[in-house]
Simulated assay, not measured.
Amino acid sequence: MTDRLLDAFLGAVGDLAPIAVWAHGSLAGGDYQEGRSDLDLIAVLEGPVGLSTVRRVVRLHRGLRKLGPLAAKVHCSYLTPGTTADADRSHLTWAHDRLMRRPVTPVTRRELHAFGLVLHGKPPEGLLPPVPDAELRAFVVRDQREFWRPSVDKARLWKQDIWVDLGMVTFARASVTLRDGRLISKREALDLLPELGAPVEVVEDIGRRRYGDDVPGSDAWLVRRAELTRAFLGPAIDRLVADRWD
Score class of each variant (00 low, 15 high):
residue 2 T to A: 06
residue 5 L to N: 07
residue 7 D to T: 15
residue 7 D to Y: 00
residue 12 A to F: 10
residue 13 V to N: 09
residue 14 G to V: 06
residue 19 I to P: 06
residue 21 V to E: 06
residue 21 V to M: 07
residue 31 D to L: 02
residue 31 D to K: 01
residue 31 D to C: 09
residue 31 D to M: 03
residue 34 E to V: 15
residue 35 G to H: 05
residue 38 D to V: 01
residue 38 D to R: 07
residue 41 L to D: 12
residue 42 I to F: 00
residue 44 V to C: 15
residue 46 E to D: 07
residue 46 E to Y: 13
residue 50 G to T: 13
residue 53 T to A: 14
residue 57 V to A: 02
residue 58 V to G: 07
residue 59 R to I: 02
residue 63 G to C: 06
residue 72 A to Y: 10
residue 76 C to R: 02
residue 76 C to G: 09
residue 76 C to K: 03
residue 80 T to N: 08
residue 86 D to L: 05
residue 87 A to H: 09
residue 87 A to C: 01
residue 88 D to G: 14
residue 95 A to V: 14
residue 96 H to Y: 15
residue 99 L to K: 10
residue 101 R to T: 05
residue 103 P to C: 13
residue 103 P to Y: 06
residue 105 T to N: 10
residue 106 P to F: 02
residue 107 V to H: 04
residue 107 V to P: 04
residue 113 H to R: 09
residue 116 G to A: 05
residue 118 V to C: 02
residue 126 G to Q: 14
residue 127 L to P: 14
residue 130 P to D: 04
residue 133 D to N: 06
residue 138 A to Q: 09
residue 138 A to D: 08
residue 138 A to H: 08
residue 141 V to K: 14
residue 143 D to S: 11
residue 146 E to Y: 11
residue 147 F to H: 06
residue 148 W to L: 11
residue 149 R to V: 04
residue 151 S to F: 05
residue 152 V to Y: 11
residue 155 A to E: 14
residue 156 R to P: 08
residue 158 W to E: 04
residue 158 W to G: 11
residue 160 Q to V: 01
residue 164 V to Q: 08
residue 165 D to R: 05
residue 167 G to V: 05
residue 168 M to H: 01
residue 169 V to F: 07
residue 173 R to H: 08
residue 174 A to H: 07
residue 175 S to H: 12
residue 175 S to M: 00
residue 176 V to D: 12
residue 187 R to K: 14
residue 189 A to H: 02
residue 191 D to N: 10
residue 191 D to K: 15
residue 193 L to H: 03
residue 195 E to F: 02
residue 196 L to P: 11
residue 200 V to K: 13
residue 203 V to N: 09
residue 204 E to P: 00
residue 204 E to Q: 10
residue 206 I to D: 00
residue 209 R to C: 08
residue 209 R to E: 11
residue 211 Y to V: 07
residue 217 G to E: 12
residue 217 G to N: 12
residue 219 D to E: 15
residue 228 L to R: 13
residue 228 L to S: 03
residue 229 T to R: 03
residue 237 I to F: 10
residue 237 I to C: 10
residue 238 D to T: 09
residue 240 L to E: 04
residue 240 L to G: 03
residue 242 A to V: 01
residue 244 R to H: 12
residue 244 R to F: 06
residue 244 R to D: 15
residue 246 D to S: 11
residue 246 D to W: 13
